[in-house]
Amino acid sequence: MRGWLYLFLFALASWLVLSHLYPALIPTPAETLAFYREVGLSLILSSLLLTLYHSFSGFLVASLLTGLAMLLALYSRAFRDFLNALNVFLQSVSVLVWTIVFIMLFGVTSSIATILVTAMASFPALLSAGVSSSEKVVEKYRPLIVLLKPSKLQLYRHFIVPGTLPEMVSAGRVALGIALRISVVAEAFGSAGGIGYRLVYSYDLGIKAGVFAWALLLILLMIALDQLLLRRLEEWVKGWYW
């Protein structure tokens, strides 16, 4: 907790100094707070909820794809090799490429483009963890698996899914962070709402307090989600296991 206090004081002091040194570029904290009052709670909440919707939907799509990939990997060694290659490929594709491709396919105003960009950005983190932790679980319990001879579905349900949960929650924490960061980038390019869209809109209109206000909102949202929800979920799952 002390670390967070120091960080807050450091950030606030830096902000005050920089806004004093570069008043034409950087708004003061007071100006930024005034912007929040100006736009109103309703717009802030709706933008925040839309960004959360994009991020969580993209994360959910990536999670479902990972779950499916982990199941299919049990049936075929060739598919496991394909997944490894796919993962390298996905990590090599820039978010900008996904954004442009999906906007071309679904249009600027559709949420689908933003959700899919977010999904494709967070999918590699989940897929890597899913494939490697599946292999670890199967190796760890191989003597029992050989003895009990479960079907592939039983293996998936009783061993893989619960056995990989701690690693998947850790990976989910990372992936959701990626999803949140990427969703605003995607919103900036191809959406009619959300924090990313508002941020770029403020930039285009030269409202510097707006740029800072929306950026700050995103940072606070990510920290709150990570520290209040994801970190605790991760600790709970690990503590529950051993």
């Binding site: 003597p143 029992l144 001879k149 949960l165």
Partner: peptide
């Protein structure tokens, strides 16, 4: 049927579910 030197109990299942796993499968 084998009792290995290691217990190989699944930590995410209660003992009842662990011992009933062979029948369940």
């Amino acid at each position: 049927s084998v009792l290995y030197q290691e217990d190989y109990l699944l930590p995410w299942k209660r003992l009842r579910d662990n011992v009933c796993l062979p029948a369940r499968f």
